[in-house]
Design a binder for these strands. Sequence first.
DNA 1: ACAAAAGTGTTGCCAGTACACCCATGA
DNA 2: TCATGGGTGTACTGGCAACACTTTTGT
Lengths: 221, 221
Amino acid sequence: MSYENNLIETLVSVFTVENGNLKVLLLRKKTEPYKGYWIIPGNVLYNNETLKQNVLTVLDEKLGLPNILIEQCYTFSNLDRYPKKRVLAVSYFGLIDSQSVKLKKQERNNYECRWFDIYELPKLGYDHEKIITKTIKKVKMFLLDNRVLSYLFPSDFTLPELQRLYEQITNKKLDRRNFRKHMFNLNVLEETGYKNETGNGRPAKLYRFKNEINQDSKVEE
Amino acid sequence: MSYENNLIETLVSVFTVENGNLKVLLLRKKTEPYKGYWIIPGNVLYNNETLKQNVLTVLDEKLGLPNILIEQCYTFSNLDRYPKKRVLAVSYFGLIDSQSVKLKKQERNNYECRWFDIYELPKLGYDHEKIITKTIKKVKMFLLDNRVLSYLFPSDFTLPELQRLYEQITNKKLDRRNFRKHMFNLNVLEETGYKNETGNGRPAKLYRFKNEINQDSKVEE
DNA sequence: ACAAAAGTGTTGCCAGTACACCCATGA
DNA sequence: TCATGGGTGTACTGGCAACACTTTTGT
């Protein structure tokens, strides 16, 4: 048996938060097999690039999302991933705030892509359902670390929004008052102005993360 | 540039605990390059095996340690890992208790291998220092989850031993009395008999983990 | 008897929880 | 003025931290 000709692909799931809901970006496949199914964006790894370089290229050229936070997740090696070739998949996840997403929207026109709520995923091609399940699990773990939340909420946000994200991650209802107390005790938030938009009920105050937070670099090779 | 001929190797760092000290198993390399240096055990990935199968084979045939708990850690893809070929490394770690290690010692005679305290590592070949640093970091995280400690302490152990492991992982001195209270509150320990051995001072009681602990399977592909 | 290490109990504090009321807006 | 959702204060509790003394062994 040979140990050559193992192909490697990267698969990068990009996450963002809209109104406190965690969303992931998927592509619609245009060709057989799995034509019409949704898949995680990715690419084949070439000989002269690292995984990280490859992923950043995918993000930049396919999705128009350069310079976002990425993190390696897991390497899948099942023999039946592809029908004829042997292809390993290294999965990554990326985080981006919804403001930046809107700005860069026009650059993604070449592909049919959509943000899906992580609890309302469509049928996925290949073994991507298994892969995204594991990735979502890791993203949740990752987000429970308060230091990285500022990647998803760099601009103004409300506390109820933040709370909704926490509730999604932990799958638990949280008490409004206790949640505030908790966040304020962390001493990483500061106020800005006001907000209306949603119209219903009393407007929520807007906050931002203080920049001083110790962002130990979590990105490595 | 080609995307074929990417080689893949696995590297598996096996950990155990002796007297509360976390140790890792390394091999001495017998051939150039890096002759005489210590390296993490591993193997090339073949076309017809998964990463997990490959790692289990390494553990069984090279190290005589079949059926231990393993967990994937990280995939390294730097271009300068090997001089001529392009080789990616998928690192794993394994956990085994020191009792089982002793029983299986004779099966490792083909290789020169040794257990190193994680704070007294020797010079490592290739980029294995970088890899083991990252692996140790992940193992520490992993071990802070109480549910997996029973893999390292299946047989009788003392509370001071357990405490030493915690202190190594967190790099903090812990209070003896508070540590006991904490462990007992978890309600996962039960007593057995007595112990002397070390001779000096009052003998410590021996404990074991109750088998009922909910060991959610943490091993997956 | 003494040194060395294991074992035990009490107290205070802080973070998390439970819970009821008031406030600002749109309809 | 009412419905909707945001904002605030208080009391309780359980886990963690700080701390001093006793017990069992070997020498």
